[in-house]
Design a protein around this nucleic acid. Structure first.
Length: 573
RNA sequence: CGGGAUGUAGCGCAGCUUGGUAGCGCGUCUGGUUCGGGACCAGAAGGCCGCAGGUUCGAAUCCUGUCAUCCCGACCA
């Protein structure tokens, strides 16, 4: 491709709407343009990257036995009403009506369609397992689209759905996908981690997320410094240190704490360390008031609480409601003498002497003991994991980092097949519901994640397997015949060797061409300049290293091919 | 939906307090000189000042409404 003919509108300045690096670079380098909030157009370079990513995904899905289908984006409401998700999905579902006023949505995911499809045409255990996948646009009317491609309202997603006869079959399909996902992210050359995850609204049992490691990631993950345990903090198990029985302490006492409302207030003014306090948080669980208690220096994990309560909606309680039930406002509340279902974190019963609110404004209790002064509806793991916590699987300790969720695999089980009455006949002629799994990869988000992880002050540094082009040839001055002829010859050679190559034939100064080459992140740059050309040499620069090497002009094509081959290798392990 | 901010040329911004029909840098076009890391000179094109009302002789500027975009939060395959 000749640069003079290529549509890649690069920008010198950062558009003001972008403030994460991937968004900035993708806009500046001319890979994407915003069409409306959360909806983007992929320009030629951007679309080439998308195609590279989807091709890797496609190959690995096919290798694992998947078959690609194309499903509709416009989906009828009835299908979603049958599964019960038309109402559950809420405002995030992008709904529309046709001229007859019939309701539809733009598919946020395709469980309903695929399950209905498979049910219509798969009737026997002999046809299972079946793995079907799609790579398409999906739609979620996000409350707040942000970070460019990272959280859009229209996005490209690969979803594979597995149908098995039983749970053992699902385990096999799930394992195939897990391996396929590892291969995919290795081939994409992204630094990633597979973590245990909460399955959230999708439902089902086991679930893993694939996180591209990046400071700007929206997800927090913990991982063990000794074994391979890793989990989303939403999911990470907190096992309390196996401590001795808590020591005895004297009778509970009441202390006056005028104006002291927060954990920090008590720590500062009363010299009560945060880990000697508890915080009592009030929620309404499907309309009913509940309280949760964690140690003063811990964070309550709302997802764990929500899972424990098995409720649909969990909201922070209104202060007026709490005051009416408990007799005090936020800042003076505690678990003693409460007439509210009480969920207590595992650590709390281990505490020697607890300080907490007294359910009376401006007073606190001290020397409170669990079991003696209050008891819980349930004692369970409720807090969020933190760096330094003991690993739940070994003697190691947890470390924390951030990640971008680029893949998520779920064991759905019977959820959708039962809801949609999707069954097959087993060996004994019995009707059985399909046992399902679903496996997603955010393709457009993966492109953003790759940039997030591979850039420098000059622009993007594409990993070879997903670079829009492998190499770019830059004649310093294309008006000089000998430079142009050398450039053209190398260009022809590389094309014949199957290299995806750009030739910057624009009538621009060298600096402009270098800046653009760096900005769009082409891995290899071949520079043809007057001095080296006299020695029958050209310069070769690897974008990811920055140094240039002189190389004989008739060897450069072979060298470029060798480098591409080497840089495209899957880094296994 | 709550909080904050911004809409002025393709991009980045000034002008608004103190009303007088719009300016800078980059980019674009023409000509010339240049030519190894975003050149220089000369000229030019390009704006319904987000939209709709209102105040006023007169509104980018003041008032009201509305729409859009971005940030923080709640939310999240």
């Amino acid at each position: 491709m000749l640069c003079s003919q290529m549509f890649f509108p690069t920008l010198r300045e950062v558009p003001s709407e972008a403030d994460v690096v991937s968004h900035q670079w993708l806009l500046r380098a001319g890979f994407i343009r915003k069409t409306t909030s959360g909806v983007y157009t992929y320009l030629p370079l951007g679309y080439r990257v998308i195609k590279k990513i989807t091709e890797i995904v496609r190959q690995e899905m096919d290798r694992a036995g998947g078959q690609e289908v194309m499903m509709p984006i416009v989906q009828p409401a009835e299908l979603w009403q049958q599964s019960g998700r038309w109402d559950v999905y809420g405002d995030e579902m992008w709904r529309l009506r046709d001229r007859h006023d019939r309701a539809y949505c733009l598919g946020p995911t395709h469980e309903e369609i695929i399950t209905t499809l498979v049910n219509a045409d798969v009737h026997s255990y002999r046809d299972l397992p079946l793995l079907l996948y799609q790579i398409q646009n999906k739609y979620r009317d996000e409350i707040r689209p942000r970070f460019g491609l990272m959280r859009g309202r229209e996005f490209i997603m690969k979803d594979l759905y597995s149908f098995d006869v039983d749970h053992a079959g699902l385990q096999i399909s799930y394992e195939k996908m897990r391996q396929a996902y590892n291969r995919i992210y290795q081939r994409l050359q992204l630094s990633y981690r597979m973590v245990e995850a909460d399955s959230g609204a999708i439902g089902g049992s086991a679930s893993h997320e694939f996180m591209v490691l990046a400071e700007t990631g929206e997800s927090e993950i913990v991982y063990c410094d000794a074994c391979d345990y890793a989990a989303n903090v939403e999911k990470a198990v907190c096992s309390p240190a196996a401590g001795a029985e808590p020591e005895e302490c004297g009778e509970m006492i009441t202390i006056s704490t005028p104006g002291l409302r927060t954990i920090n207030d008590l720590a500062e003014h009363m010299q009560i360390a945060a880990q000697e306090q508890v915080k009592t948080l009030f929620y309404t669980s499907d309309g009913e008031l509940v309280a949760a208690v964690v140690r003063g220096d811990r964070e309550l994990n709302e997802i764990k609480l929500k899972n424990a309560l098995n409720c649909n909606e969990l909201l922070m309680a209104d202060e007026a409601v709490v005051r009416e039930r408990c007799g005090a406002g936020f800042g003076s509340l505690g678990p003693v003498g409460l007439d509210v279902p009480l969920y207590v974190d595992l650590e709390v019963p281990q505490m020697a002497a607890i300080s907490c609110g007294c359910n009376r404004d401006d007073f606190h209790y001290s020397r409170v003991k669990y079991g003696r002064d209050f008891t819980a509806t349930a004692v369970l793991d409720l807090r969020s994991a933190e760096a330094g916590d003991p690993c739940p699987h070994c003697q190691g300790h947890l470390l924390k980092m951030r990640g971008i969720e680029v893949g998520h695999i779920f064991q759905l089980g019977l959820k959708y097949s039962v809801a949609l009455d999707a069954t097959y006949l087993d060996k004994d002629g019995q009707q059985k519901p399909f046992v399902m799994g679903c496996y997603g990869i955010g393709v457009s988000r993966t492109m953003a994640a790759a940039v997030e992880q591979n850039n420098d002050a000059d622009g993007i540094i594409w990993p070879m397997p997903i670079a829009p082009y492998h190499a770019i040839i830059v004649p310093v001055n294309a008006n000089k015949a000998e430079q142009w002829e050398a450039a053209w010859r190398i260009y022809q050679q590389l094309q014949e060797l199957g290299v995806e190559v750009l030739l910057d034939d624009r009538d621009q100064r060298a600096g402009v061409k270098f800046k653009d080459a760096d900005l769009i992140g082409i891995p290899l740059r071949i520079t043809i300049g007057p001095k080296s050309l006299q020695e029958k040499q050209v310069e070769l620069k690897k974008r990811w290293e920055g140094e240039t090497h002189l190389i004989a002009i008739d060897q450069v094509a072979a060298e470029v091919v060798a480098i591409i081959e080497q840089a495209s290798q899957v880094k296994m392990g």
